[in-house]
Simulated assay, not measured.
Amino acid sequence: MDTARLELAAQRYREAEQAFDAAREDLQAEAVAVLQQNEERGAQATVARITGWTREYVRRIKKRADEQGA
Rank of each mutant, 00 (worst) to 15 (best):
Q11V: 04
R12P: 04
R60S: 09
Q18C: 05
V47N: 08
A19P: 02
A29N: 12
A9N: 02
R14P: 02
N38V: 02
A29V: 01
G52E: 09
A29K: 10
T54G: 14
Q36Y: 00
Q37L: 07
A16N: 00
R59Q: 13
G52P: 00
Q36C: 05
A16M: 00
A19W: 02
L27H: 07
R60V: 12
R60F: 10
L8D: 07
E7D: 15
L27C: 10
A45R: 15
V32E: 02
I50Y: 07
R24L: 03
V34N: 00
R5F: 05
W53F: 12
E56Y: 10
R41Q: 14
R14S: 10
A19L: 10
Q11E: 13
T46R: 15
F20A: 13
L35K: 03
V47Y: 04
E39F: 07
V34G: 01
A45C: 07
A33Y: 02
R59P: 03
T51F: 08
D21E: 15
E25L: 07
G42T: 14
R5A: 14
E25N: 01
A19K: 11
V47D: 08
A43K: 07
Q37G: 12
Q44K: 13
Y57G: 03
A33N: 08
Y13D: 09
R41M: 10
R60N: 13
Q37K: 11
E30T: 09
A10L: 14
G52S: 12
A16H: 06
Y13F: 11
T54V: 07
E40I: 09
E30W: 06
R5Q: 11
R60K: 14
E39H: 13
E17F: 00
E7M: 09
Q18T: 09
T54M: 06
Q18H: 12
F20M: 04
W53P: 02
A33V: 00
L8H: 05
T54C: 01
A22I: 00
E56W: 08
E30D: 12
T51R: 04
E17Q: 15
Q18Y: 10
E56S: 12
E15P: 06
A10Q: 14
I50P: 00
A10M: 14
V47I: 12
G42R: 14
R24Q: 09
A33H: 03
N38K: 06
G42P: 02
L6C: 06
V32P: 02
E40D: 15
Q11H: 03
A48S: 11
L6V: 13
V34K: 01
E7Q: 12
R14Y: 14
E15S: 08
A22P: 01
R59S: 14
E39I: 07
Y13S: 09
A23N: 01
G42M: 12
Q44M: 11
